[in-house]
Design a protein around this nucleic acid. Sequence first.
DNA 1: TCAGCTTTGTGAAAACGTGCACGAGCGACC
DNA 2: GGTCGCTCGTGCACGTTTTCACAAAGCTGA
Lengths: 234, 234
Amino acid sequence: MAGQRTRRRIPEATVARLPVYLRILSEQFDADVTNISSEGLAEFAGLNAAKVRKDLSYLGSYGTRGVGYDVEFLVYQIRRELGLTHDWPVVIVGAGNLGQALAGYNGFGDRGFPVGGIVDVDDSKVGSVVGGVRVRHFDELAQVVQARNISIGVIATPGSAAQQAADALVAAGVTSLLNFAPCVIGVPHGVSVRKVDLAVELQILSYYEQRRATAAPVAGLRAVPGEPRRGATA
Amino acid sequence: MAGQRTRRRIPEATVARLPVYLRILSEQFDADVTNISSEGLAEFAGLNAAKVRKDLSYLGSYGTRGVGYDVEFLVYQIRRELGLTHDWPVVIVGAGNLGQALAGYNGFGDRGFPVGGIVDVDDSKVGSVVGGVRVRHFDELAQVVQARNISIGVIATPGSAAQQAADALVAAGVTSLLNFAPCVIGVPHGVSVRKVDLAVELQILSYYEQRRATAAPVAGLRAVPGEPRRGATA
DNA sequence: TCAGCTTTGTGAAAACGTGCACGAGCGACC
DNA sequence: GGTCGCTCGTGCACGTTTTCACAAAGCTGA
């Protein structure tokens, strides 16, 4: 109650952009850039400077007027705000095509989300090793979760098994889910879900493609208002 | 100018939900459900009924008051609006871990987006076959695109090569990009980009996890306002 | 035909997110 | 110390999205 600063509520749209800023700032830091302006950061992120400033202002007043932001300090602050000061091991449910690719994808572990376990219902897959982790049986999910104190689960099952996977993950104590299955899953209040559906993304692109094709059959390629902005994240 | 009905502009938020409705409706159709209410559809999609009705109203007045919507007809209308009346072959740039997984993932082709080609700069990968498609060299990208009249490109390269991949795709005539690389890419006006970044999704989950952990250290698990809604896509 | 029930379609209001414009504060230089 | 130029932080207005509330319209059964 004493130490921690008052918790401001950060808008969801801003939360979704913080990881983008973090990546850019980390790259700049690695390139020995020590200071950056909202204008510069906006350029890298494909946004406008006012939005960047407003987003960063939710973290606190960490910029210096007339100068900009200290890159290293901002990296630290964003990491702290996003809870990235320690690793978050994840458990993957489903060792099929997608599950294997995810387990083998270094981008997870490199960014603080090591694969702490992977499970599948298929006995023929159990025991094999993907991405350096041995596949265990779905029934052992709770053990895996509790042994490593995992709070993030990744659903990489077919749609028909996704709800069952979600239920098992929640029952095991997982409170955040990343769902790759092409279906909506229901979870108790207090559990976060984010969904990534590749087909949906392609269908959205298809809409704008089709619209370009039919809306301006005479004028040829032309700007279409209401286009998705760049950097629209899943 | 004569035949086609006036083109109403559909809000981006609605466009992003139409694929979800489409999937649900297709499943219902396969289960021999012929009619569905906005309430029923909302339940499946994890939304409220008013939003569903407003979304569908952008397509036209296709419901029947007191009854609901004809599932088959609605499927047809959404497919038409999204431009899904024909296949959209895609070309994948990058045959690494992710590119191979995408090529091997049946969910693409099944939903009208067959992999029309996959290219890589690495000679050792050229010639190998993934997901039934032979990997060709990056230099042949334009040929691949033009031979199959491809307008959607998938970027599955490392971040450092993403901009180069995007430039080559655009130069070859591709007008829609799905970017899996962890960076923002710049494209000319008139080209659509959607971005999927797995690490970003996990970092967003991390934020809410961390918030839960620090915001209510006494009361234990509690609802957090401003939680991402379920099914938050892209 | 009419009453009663159901469900759509849609204005209007509320909530949310974005972009502009400008005051405030900081550093640099004289 | 004062002036100048730069950049942050933020109030405000605008556009978009969500939610509410209800009239309109269809079906059922008498």
